[in-house]
Each structure stands twice: as structure tokens, then as C-alpha cells.
Design a protein around this nucleic acid. Sequence first.
DNA 1: TTGCAACAGTTTCAGATGAAACTAGCTTCA
DNA 2: TGAAGCTAGTTTCATCTGAAACTGTTGCAA
Lengths: 172, 172
Amino acid sequence: MASPRRKPSDTEPSTTGAAKLHLTRFLPYRVSVLSNVVSHTVAKLYDKRFGITIPEWRIIAVLGGGETLSAGEIAQRTAMDKVQVSRAISRMLDSALILRESGDTDRRKALLTLTPKALAIYAEIVPLALAYEAQLTSALTEEESVQLDRLLIKLQAQADQLAVTPDPKNTP
Amino acid sequence: MASPRRKPSDTEPSTTGAAKLHLTRFLPYRVSVLSNVVSHTVAKLYDKRFGITIPEWRIIAVLGGGETLSAGEIAQRTAMDKVQVSRAISRMLDSALILRESGDTDRRKALLTLTPKALAIYAEIVPLALAYEAQLTSALTEEESVQLDRLLIKLQAQADQLAVTPDPKNTP
DNA sequence: TTGCAACAGTTTCAGATGAAACTAGCTTCA
DNA sequence: TGAAGCTAGTTTCATCTGAAACTGTTGCAA
């Protein structure tokens, strides 16, 4: 059935001496798999009904309130890098979802606003997005949802830390 | 303080008539951002010290016990698609991390085993991976870790459901 | 048998990606 | 001023990716 060698009273310390690791219990793997499934599902939703990608959706989401932002500000708020934002914007210009005018004070900054067409998509897509989110969390109790919120905040903060400082011991 | 808008009795019904959506509170977005940061950090770790990618690491992880699996089985256990697995395997063949021999009974299935070189990487990498995971969860209490485990299981199950059946109402 | 559908794995193709180089506009300070 | 160095955003390049097409193998059924 399961484990071939029964006696861990090893005489051989090196061959399989290391700790074992089950991928399905490894947090980075689990988060990645969850994210993939969720993103894929959501991407299909957006693409099928509105013909937009997730980067485009994110831009619509942050500009949906009618605000005007620069590409850099969009990058910050959507956690995308500037290249991704630049490309999404150029697609959105083609499909008349966004309006670009260069700023008066600083002509490097482009001021970006959604077109009515994009605002209409926003109005339609938000309920769908929220419905999906609701379905996703429908398996959770109210209390668990609160826990999830707290855990995600903590994990994100810690992950950000570790991304900057890979190994504390190596940086004295 | 949780919910920001208490009174839905808004005075402006059409301009932003749709429900608003804050990206930073939208679960799919949050999971995606977390996954990106974690994956990126982990990928750097694996690449820098061992010159392997995450797909390769996953294959090493599932074969690390010394098992022999087919590519299809690896795909299942690593949640990668067969193309990804195929490509990772061909890279690993080049770098002598994996051994491939065609099966006796079914010559379509290739039997894959790690080489000693890969097992050595496994032995080295597992402690690093577990250390990263431990650092990631070090911000959580013991109880929170248990909660996280339960929440991830529930969310994954639900996400899988929704991936298969996008909208229950449309499938009578 | 042979014909055909199903399966394992690979390759192709077209698009997505990120790092680094690049362009253009702004700021600083000698 | 004006050279040097920022910053915003774009483009290039090399790689990665997933869907679909393809190759070779097996199983089944007429």
C-alpha cells in the first residue's frame, strides 16, 4: 500500500535523509493552484461576455468610479507592472474603452479615463464579479469569511516582507 | 470596521448605479496578488540555487520519494497540464535530472524517475522550501494555521466546482 | 484481421510575459 | 543656461504559455 520502507531507524542518513514534502500540503503550491483556478474561471467570464482580459478588467475596476489616473497610478493600484499596464491601455485604446490625454503640468503623464462604453461594461461586470466572489465564499460561514480576510492580510504582508528580504540571516 | 457603505439609499442612481467594487477587497484579485508574490519569491529561490523552474521543482517534489510515475500521473499530481509537464521533462532530460524509459506493457507511457543528481537537489531544496513556508506562516498563530488549512480546502473545492459549472442557473 | 475511437505525449502556432533598453519630458545645480 | 540625472511610459527581445493539431500506441468491435 503506502510506505515501502517501514523502519525509519535509518542506518543510511543521506539517501533519503531529508524531510519529505507533500506538494498538496505545501502552502505556496496550494495558493498557486487556487489562484490558477480562480483566475482562469474569472478570465473566461470576462472574456466571454465582454471580450476583455484580466489586466483590462483591473484597469476598468480602478477607473470605474470615474476617476482619472496616470498609468503609473494604475500600475500601483492594480499590482501590475508598468509594461503590463501600458499594453493593456493600448489594447483598450484600440477598442475605445479608454481615453488618453497628456497632462498639462507634466506631459509625460497620460491622464486616463474610461469611455462610456467601458463604464457600461463596468456596470455590467461588477455584479457578475461580486456574484462569483459570493459563490466562492458561499461555502464559508460568516465567521470564516472574517478569518479569511484576516489571514490573507497577514499572509500578504509576510509574503511582501519575504520578497524583499529573502533570508534574514544573510542580511546582517 | 468592515462594511463601508451602510446606507444603500444613495441619491445618485445611474451615474455609478452599479455596485462599486474595490479591487483590494475582491477575493480573486487578492488571491492572485498573493500567489504572484509567493511564486515569484519561491521561483527565485529555486532558480538561484539550483537552476530549476517551478514546474521542474514540482516534478522533483512528486518524484522525490523515489517513485516512478508516467507524465500523465505527474500532471495530475502537480496540477500542471500535460504540455507544461512535457516541456519540463524535456528540460530535465537535458540537465540529467530525470530518467525516462518506455513502459513494457504500454509503450505510450513513459516511466519517469529522478536521477541521483535530482534526488540530491530534492534533499537540499526541501528544507529551504519548508523554511520559506514556515516564515510565511510565522505571522500566524497555531490556531490561525489550522483555520487557513481549512479555508484553503473549502475554497479550492468551491473554486473547482465553479470552474466546471460556471453558472448553475444556465445548466438545467 | 482491419478499421476506428481513445489515449499518451510532443510539436506548432499565435499570443502573453518580464527584463532591459529606449524615448521623451522634467528637475537640479553648477 | 545646460549637462547630468530622474521619471513616465513604450518598445524590443527572448522566453513562456495554452489551445489545437499532430504522432505514435492501444483497445475495441465488426
